[in-house]
Amino acid sequence: MIETIDFAGDENIGVYTRVFEDLAVVPLDAPEEYISVVEKRLGVEVINTTIQGSSIIGSLLAGNSNGFIVSSLATSSEVAVLKGHGDVMFLGASMNAAGNVILANDELAIVHPGITDRVAEKISAFLDVPVLMSTIGNIPTVGMAGVATNKGLLLNPGLTKHEIRDIEEITDLPVGTGTVNMGNGLIGTGLIANTTGFLVGSSTSGFELSRIDEVFGY
């Protein structure tokens, strides 16, 4: 069973890929072998695009089953691709890396504490989830400090008691900490997952794999 993989030699697969329950978004230059593994392992349809002209899809795209969030810097052709699969919300250009500043599943969203209350309210309404403005392990780029599926949340090992308490107030899902790629606490850079399964960077250890299994309950 394939669990570890790289993206054209790069173990940071979460930087290039954004996964939802039924869909994965990957760059135009994604290798066919990579696409095939993502489709089979996660049970998703894969679509190819750029976001803001870039291949770092995971950093620039966020959302859940209710739609996609990108910055207003996304091009009309990129937005058209996304709209073929769901609704699209735009962040202001000042927060242009949606995938870095939003961690979301179908039950909650955690957002960069620098996002304004007005934008946080728009995110909550668009994704139809409660929104928590917080850091994860004192890291403001929450989208890369953790991975959230509809089975649980795997978060940076520096997660504080205060952060845990705030998260547990808005979800009953399991919350755990871990790392990927031999100790990298920016879990979102190296792990992609949904309720069907997960894929993680090729340097990830057996202990780290076991922790992912434990938290998400695969």
Score class of each variant (00 low, 15 high):
M144T: 13
T177E: 05
A62S: 14
V175L: 00
R211N: 07
D166E: 15
D87A: 11
P140W: 07
D6I: 09
V25D: 12
A148R: 00
P157H: 01
L173Q: 03
I192H: 05
R211S: 02
A97W: 03
P174R: 00
G183A: 07
K151Q: 04
V131Y: 01
M1V: 08
G158D: 02
V215R: 06
P31S: 15
G63A: 08
L199Q: 06
I56R: 02
S203C: 09
R41D: 07
G190I: 13
D117S: 13
V111K: 10
G201M: 00
I139T: 02
N48I: 13
S202I: 15
L108H: 04
G152L: 04
D106V: 01
A8Q: 11
G188D: 03
G9C: 08
N12G: 11
V37R: 05
E208D: 09
G114P: 01
L73G: 06
T149V: 04
T196M: 10
G67A: 12
D106W: 02
T177W: 00
N12F: 08
N64G: 08
G197K: 08
E107P: 05
V88Y: 10
I115S: 10
L28W: 08
I57D: 13
N184D: 00
L91F: 15
T196Q: 12
I110Q: 02
M133L: 14
L108C: 14
G206D: 01
D106M: 07
T149D: 06
H162G: 03
L108G: 12
N12T: 13
N105V: 01
T50A: 08
F207S: 09
G137V: 11
S202K: 12
G53M: 12
R165Q: 05
A80C: 07
V46A: 04
